[in-house]
């Protein structure tokens, strides 16, 4: 935002207490997850726009603002709210560049909160990557730790195409013990990274589940198996090269996705493995996902919904023999 005055931020309570600065109320929320905290004090109300609860209106306005020369970051809060702004994302944001013959560019970033965390229940806990990744015209990235969160955020906001960033609620507040450089840097959109090397099995994680995979790999190491962990980072485009290269080494793949299983990114990665690495695989691709059920409230049930270290480890053991 400091580099480019055309960058704006908009969404519900991206600062909060709109219009009450005179009464001393400034920036009480800074975003529902405090991700935009402090911005209004540096950039003011013309570039940090609190919106009414009006997703079709403000996501669509983000699209229009992008078409007319701004670079908006639009916070749609929980990804499940796609139900109240889907038309703007799927029919306008994803398609305008193509259907206008490439003559209008839309440098807009959408930020959406994902992942079951602490009893938010069915409508505030989903991930829904595949719905967005399904659409040509959208790029979709999923940070898995503070370092990738910063690098992908900057890359997304500098990208001239529409980008959706999925932010995991379950990773917030986790201590990663990781150095994040103070200066700006970008992670390339469309590139995965190997976060742990190994020869016995490839584990593919997405956002939250990358952490699960790393922990499962640690558990497997104690059992004498070396798992390689691929942190997907981008669900559209998918970094086929990194994935296939890892599979060619380990000859086994376990895909871990906390999204619903049907027609999911896990399905896509499984198909990719089967179609392009069939001859390299010693076992069929395995998917460890959420069940085909909405996300429950009770902590006992919620814990069962997303892939755990135990379920991932168990799935690996089954193909490792």
């Amino acid at each position: 935002m400091r580099e480019d005055s055309s960058t704006i931020v908009m969404g519900i309570d991206v600062a909060g207490a709109a219009g009450k600065a005179d009464e001393g109320f400034i920036d009480p929320f800074g975003g529902t997850f405090a991700m935009t905290k402090g911005l209004i004090q540096e950039f003011g109300t013309s570039r940090v726009l609190d919106t009414p609860i009006s997703e079709t209106g403000f996501v669509g306005a983000g699209v229009g603002a992008a078409a007319a020369g701004l670079r908006p970051l639009v916070d749609m809060m929980f990804v499940g709210f796609i139900g109240v702004c889907g038309d703007q994302i799927f029919n306008n944001m994803a398609k305008m560049h193509y259907m206008f013959g490439g003559k209008v560019k839309l440098p807009i970033t959408i930020q959406a909160q994902t992942a079951a965390s602490g009893g938010n229940a069915a409508q505030h806990s989903e991930t829904l990557y595949s719905i967005f990744a399904h659409f040509p015209g959208l790029k979709c990235v999923v940070p898995s730790d503070p370092y990738s969160a910063k690098g992908l955020q900057i890359a997304a906001m500098k990208d001239d195409d529409p980008v959706v960033i999925f932010q995991s609620t379950r990773l917030m507040g986790v201590n990663f013990d990781q150095h994040v450089p103070e200066e700006a840097y970008e992670l390339p959109i469309g590139k995965s990274r190997i976060v742990k090397t190994g020869d016995d099995v490839t584990l593919i994680g997405i956002g939250t589940t990358t952490r699960t995979c790393i922990q499962a790999a640690e558990s497997l190491a104690k059992q004498g198996y070396q798992a390689e962990v691929v942190d997907l980072l981008s669900v559209s485009p998918i970094d086929e090269e990194t994935i296939l290269s890892s599979i060619s080494k380990t000859r086994k793949v376990v895909i871990v996705d906390e999204d619903y299983p049907k027609c999911s990114v896990a399905s896509e990665l499984s198909a990719l493995s089967a179609e392009k690495a069939f001859d390299l695989l010693d076992a069929p691709p395995v998917r460890v996902t959420a069940p085909h059920a909405s996300i429950p409230y009770s902590s006992v049930l919620e814990q069962l919904h997303f892939p755990s270290v135990e379920t991932v480890t168990k799935a690996c053991r089954e193909i490792l023999g």
Partner: peptide, 28 residues
């Protein structure tokens, strides 16, 4: 659509362009 003339597009979904136009005004 013809951006050089400020025509930022017809739109096949009824009501879909109204928020987009609002965003163009926001940009201005």
């Amino acid at each position: 659509a013809d951006a050089t003339k400020g025509m930022l597009g017809a739109n096949g979904v009824v009501g879909s362009n109204i928020p987009v136009a609002t965003g163009c005004a926001l940009s201005a």
